[in-house]
Design a binder for these strands. Structure first.
Lengths: 207, 207
DNA sequence: GAAATAGTGTCTGTTAGACACTATCAG
DNA sequence: CTGATAGTGTCTAACAGACACTATTTC
């Protein structure tokens, strides 16, 4: 009996101005019927990142998404079936692709706000906490990946606020983002309801 | 044939005012005779961290040392024997314990300056690069762990300089360290050669 | 013109870098 | 008194937080 290796993925998205995590309802034991983050066993011929991408695609239909490694979790006893070491990853889903997430593999899959997660299978609660801490620490670098290619500064600020869980000052926020130098103004605007249209921006390669 | 799991450890130390990494000479194939970082297979009943501590103790005689997880490395082909995923860790050895490092397990073990490493077995070169980047990013939190419990500010500054590979301004360095609030002055001094004795300090619990 | 969101500048306190001299010890 | 390292303060530029009003659109 040897150690088995899995990958798990914390998939973040923004919906209704709140930060959400994709959970799947487990269709088999252990933790049958429990919510968990998507994941599965690593195959012999694929890298860890490829395995994470494959599982993400299988369970959510999302393809070609950058994933980043978070950490390995391997305490004995974390999986009642035996010794399983998982390499956890996280990924960010742009809000224009959230609806594509009809699960193909899992019994059920839906997004939950991070502020209102159910209790999770295995040690997945701990994994999500780690991923959230990482996302918060790197919000400036990662925030825009939760948005479509073109977005307004108001949308970006709401994403940051959803990630950090606190309100930000609009002028300080814009100054900070502007001096990163990674934002490029477009010629077009987004008109949303009954108010002044907002300029659209896109991200350049870093510096 | 399934995936096997190892842990590897990048053990840092300071010697001759230079940052060093412990390498062991491999006593068996693959990479027989090559230098590598210490590591080995994870046992069924131990956590990843316990495995890293055990390997560190077996190969270096160093016990009870804090290790931190770095990342998992698992590309297919990184080990010619088959599919092996390693969970890399790093640890910091205080300079008063460097001489304890007579290897008990490996054919040979010695420290190499990070600026002058030989080419390493497997993907260990990449692992050491990651560990070094992590250490540099967290030098303020971690630097003192490369020193004995009592140390002078000059010693601490030389440790930071060895880690960062660049000279630091003495006054700015002392101000920055002082305002962390984690340093406590002792009543004693260290007299080193023919110069003014330097006050000794120790670290308090954070804040 | 009311409602809604976009967009914009200043002041202030803190932080980080550049920079040079005096103090204390052994010999 | 020489050599060696310890120890100390100021000025300046960049950055971060607090804070309020005008602009543009729809209805």
């Amino acid at each position: 009996m040897s150690i088995r290796v899995t990958v798990d993925i914390v998939l973040f998205a923004i919906a209704k101005d709140r930060l959400q995590v994709l959970l799947v309802e487990r269709g088999k034991a252990p933790f049958l019927g429990c919510w968990a983050i998507p994941g599965g066993f690593v195959r012999e011929s694929e890298s860890l990142e490829e395995a994470a991408l494959r599982e993400l695609a299988e369970e959510t239909g999302v393809r070609d998404h950058a994933v980043e490694q978070l950490a390995a979790f391997g305490d004995p006893g974390r999986d009642p079936r035996g010794r399983v070491v998982t390499v956890a990853h996280y990924a960010l889903l742009p809000s224009d692709r959230v609806t594509l997430c009809a699960g193909t593999d899992a019994a059920a899959a839906r997004f939950f706000p991070v502020s209102d997660l159910p209790s999770l299978a295995f040690d997945h609660g701990r994994i999500v906490s780690h991923a959230l801490a990482r996302l918060r620490a790197r919000v400036v670098d990662l925030g825009f990946r939760l948005l479509p290619a073109h977005f307004t500064l108001g949308e970006l600020q709401r994403v940051h606020e959803a990630i950090l869980g606190s309100a930000l000052d609009k002028r300080n926020f814009r100054r900070r983002i502007a001096q990163l130098g990674t934002l490029r103004a477009l010629r077009s605007f987004r008109t949303e309801g009954a108010s002044r249209p907002a300029r659209l921006y896109t991200w350049q390669r870093s510096r």
